[in-house]
């Protein structure tokens, strides 16, 4: 058996040929009614109605809220050293409900990460990462890592003293990583110190690269959860 066949078997066993609920056929429907019924009536097992199983969904809700509030902030925010601080000040003082939206975005970031961390502990506790769900776990841990990076890049954007120096210290620490440290700093900082390049790089990473990546990972993750069902049988 070749290595390719082994890889195919790995995914077949865990996803394509896996059936979690007896009597629930994971076939692709050929009409809309069956499709919708499959989406809507998919049974959630009793044990998964425990409140601690809410955390993943909460993290996703927080993610959606971050996108909504982030888009609103993006309507006024200007990612250049000359204009960034003033644009945030404008949002805080002039824009209708601007300070509320910014507050929601900043607090929402904390709640988003807190929900992911707690969700990770829940999955750890219930052993839900076991076969066939290993890859779902790996994807989840990746989302956790990416959202920490979201927090780090978002922190710089207001371009106030705390933002500037926290990023300077953070990048200094990243620079001490052996071998790749210098490359990481060059890529992220784009100059000898935190400056205009850093701001535009952090901005595009924060509002495009990371959200798109997280969305892609979540889409795959949700498809896998759908197929594999919610782990249980404690």
């Amino acid at each position: 058996m070749g290595i390719i066949q082994k890889v195919i078997d790995f995914f077949d066993e865990r996803y394509f040929k896996y059936v979690d609920t007896p009597g629930w056929k994971p076939t692709v429907p050929n009409n809309m009614k069956d499709f919708l019924e499959g989406v809507m009536k998919k049974p959630i097992p009793d044990y998964a109605t425990h409140p601690m199983y809410c955390l993943g969904g909460l993290a996703f809700a927080a993610f959606l809220l971050q996108i909504a509030t982030g888009i609103l902030l993006g309507m006024y925010y200007k990612p250049t050293p000359e204009a960034a601080y003033e644009s945030v000040k404008f949002i805080m003082t002039q824009v209708y409900m601007g300070s509320l939206i910014r507050g929601l975005h900043a607090w929402g970031a904390n709640i988003f990460i807190a929900a992911i961390v707690l969700h990770t502990f829940r999955v750890f506790l219930t052993g839900s990462y076991k076969k066939p769900r290993e890859l779902t776990w790996v994807l989840g841990v990746s989302v956790l890592g990416l959202s920490l990076f979201e927090g780090f890049t978002g922190y710089l954007l207001p371009w106030d003293q705390l933002a500037y120096w926290a990023t300077t210290v953070g990048l200094q620490i990243a620079g001490t990583v052996p071998v790749v440290g210098d490359i990481i700093v060059q890529l992220l900082q784009g100059g000898p110190t935190v400056g205009p390049n850093t701001l535009s790089r952090f901005y595009i990473i924060h509002v495009v690269l990371l959200p798109l990546t997280i969305m892609g990972i979540l889409a795959i993750k949700f498809l896998m959860i759908r197929r594999q069902g919610i782990s249980g049988g404690l």
Partner: peptide, 24 residues
């Protein structure tokens, strides 16, 4: 608990101490 906005970034005046976000 509105999110504060400090003084504008000044590359020549180091800010101390710096508090990272709780998750760091």
């Amino acid at each position: 608990f509105p999110t504060p906005l400090g003084d504008p970034a000044d590359p020549f005046t180091t800010l101390t101490p710096i508090f990272p976000e709780w998750y760091f």
